[in-house]
Every structure is written in structure tokens, then in C-alpha cells.
């Protein structure tokens, strides 16, 4: 990997959830940290999210979800990545997600889940390391 290559991240809002404050804040924080950000906007199907990530040659997909439908959407996105042989794309996320639900999301293959109150710097550091380890 060349040192110059910027980390590319798709920030995604799956499903019908309209809460985009967190998605936009994390998108800007990652951008300010020097990453390239593709923000999908609202109401994306898992298929659209995965297609965007592959087309954009993304290193990671960050899923923001506050509607309680996280189990469903993380599973769909991760399964689709597998189907398309794109499991090298890191999946992480945040939102209103109870701590008890995190282990099962990690078991599915999510790299990290950041709950309410997480500083953006924590997510940035984690993502930089995760992308570095992967390549």
C-alpha cells in the first residue's frame, strides 16, 4: 500500500431511519482526519450500499442506524459482501444499539460498533488501524 493512498469510507444510512446527525458528524470527522468519504444519504437498501462500496473501491462501510433494525441490516450488508467476494471491505457502525446486541454484530463480522457518546477520535483511530492491518 502506498502511503499516499487515502482511506475511502462509505457512510451509509440503511433502511427507513431518518436520523442522520450522527452519520453526517462522523462523515465530517473522518473527512477532517484526511479520509475520503462517500455519504449515501437516507433510505439505502443493503444492495445499494454494497454496490456503492464496491464501485467506489471503499476500504470500509460505516453504518449508522438508530431505528433498532441493526441486526437485520448488518447481517444483510455483511452477507452481500460475502456473496460478492468483497469481504475485505471493513464494516463498522454506530447508533442506538444496546451493548447486549454488540457481540452478535461482531460475530456476524462487523469490525466495531461505537455506541452513543463515543468520541469521533476513537472511531478514527480504530479505522486507521483496521485498514492498515487489512492491507
Amino acid at each position: 500500500m502506498s502511503d499516499k493512498k487515502k482511506i475511502r469510507v462509505v457512510i451509509a444510512k440503511p433502511g427507513l431511519d431518518g436520523h442522520d446527525r450522527g452519520a453526517k458528524v462522523i462523515a465530517r470527522a473522518l473527512r477532517d482526519a484526511g479520509m475520503e468519504i462517500i455519504y449515501t444519504g437516507l433510505r439505502q437498501t443493503p444492495e445499494q450500499i454494497v454496490t456503492t462500496a464496491i464501485q467506489e473501491d471503499a476500504d470500509a462501510i460505516g453504518i449508522s442506524i438508530l431505528s433498532g433494525a441493526h441486526q437485520f441490516y448488518f447481517k444483510r450488508v455483511i452477507d452481500l459482501l460475502k456473496e460478492k467476494n468483497a469481504s475485505d471491505i471493513i464494516v463498522f457502525g454506530g447508533g442506538v444499539i444496546p451493548e447486549d446486541d454488540i457481540p452478535s454484530l461482531l460475530d456476524l463480522g462487523a469490525g466495531a460498533i461505537f455506541g452513543p457518546g463515543t468520541p469521533t477520535s476513537t472511531a478514527i483511530e480504530w479505522l486507521e488501524k483496521a485498514v492498515l492491518t487489512k492491507s
Binding site: 427507513l16 431511519d17 437498501t45 431505528s67 433498532g68 433494525a69 441486526q71 437485520f72
Partner: peptide, 15 residues
């Protein structure tokens, strides 16, 4: 969307 619409999958009764 009605609950059986494909866009509604996973969201029924959540919020």
C-alpha cells in the same frame, strides 16, 4: 409502506 413491502423489511414495530 405496508409491512409486507420490501422496503419495510426489518423495521416493523421498531420505533
Amino acid at each position: 409502506y405496508d409491512t409486507d413491502h420490501h422496503m419495510a423489511a426489518g423495521e416493523c414495530g421498531k420505533v
